[in-house]
Amino acid sequence: MKSQVIYEDEATRYLKIAYPTAPLRPYVEYFFEVLQPATLSNPLYLTGLPSLNGLLCVVLNDRHWLSFHSSAPTVQSLKGSRFLGPISHLFTSIYPEGTHQFLVKFKPGMMGRFFGFPDRELENGQVDLSYLAPGEPIDDLLRELPDFQSRVNRIEFVLLDKLPNLKSDYRFELVQRALHYFQSAPGHAGVSDVSRQLPVTYPSLYRYFTEELGYSPKYCQRLIRFKKAYRLYKLHGSIYPFEEAGYTDFSHFVRETRLLTTKVPSEL
């Protein structure tokens, strides 16, 4: 399949990225916009790797696209702006006539906090924006703006307005700290290390993770490790010392990639 994974550091003329201002940094990874043409005879294929992040996707053109996951013979035909939940499988989207989308990539568990639903309820799913955020014409607001930067400014304004109402508790904060640890610590940092660091017992950590994100801490750690390693694979190929990314060797990374995505790294 000629599908492609778009990475934030892969500057293409089809991809624009902006990072949030300081107050939103704990909640939002980044904003991005994909404007990529295609034709019915040469449609655009994009791959979404398994991810803990929720996405708010504002569709700026009026086209259908198809979305299906790696193992099931089901296809969803989608149209219009939507919330896209965290995904535990490889998802491929086909845009028969190209795409123009503005997206907000939230940190794990954060999207639902802004819009009043638990992220885990959208696992491997998506829902129309108007269904979970009724009375908030976000897509109308963004569509009428002339460029990416104006859309970033406007969505920041919308999110900042919601910030004072954001509910948080110690469990959620522990989960966020654990995720931050997985993200920033060296590859071999495991779940037991994070339990010691926080400190919290593993059963409690497990409970908090499943309540807040719907996944175990071990799965989250594996996913974060895989995504960091896959990025290195894309940059350096198989010669990269994968033990530094937390794997025994390259074969271990390949096995893990297959387990998480059903494909080997070169097929992604």
């Binding site: 019915l40 040469n42 299906f68 013979p73 296809v75 086909i94």
Partner: peptide, 20 residues
């Protein structure tokens, strides 16, 4: 050229991508 390319695109999306 256009019509055959489009039909093949659809069949590829049906058989390879959707129905595996």
């Amino acid at each position: 050229m256009q019509s055959v390319a489009e039909h093949l695109s659809v069949l590829t999306a049906v058989f390879r991508d959707t129905l595996k």
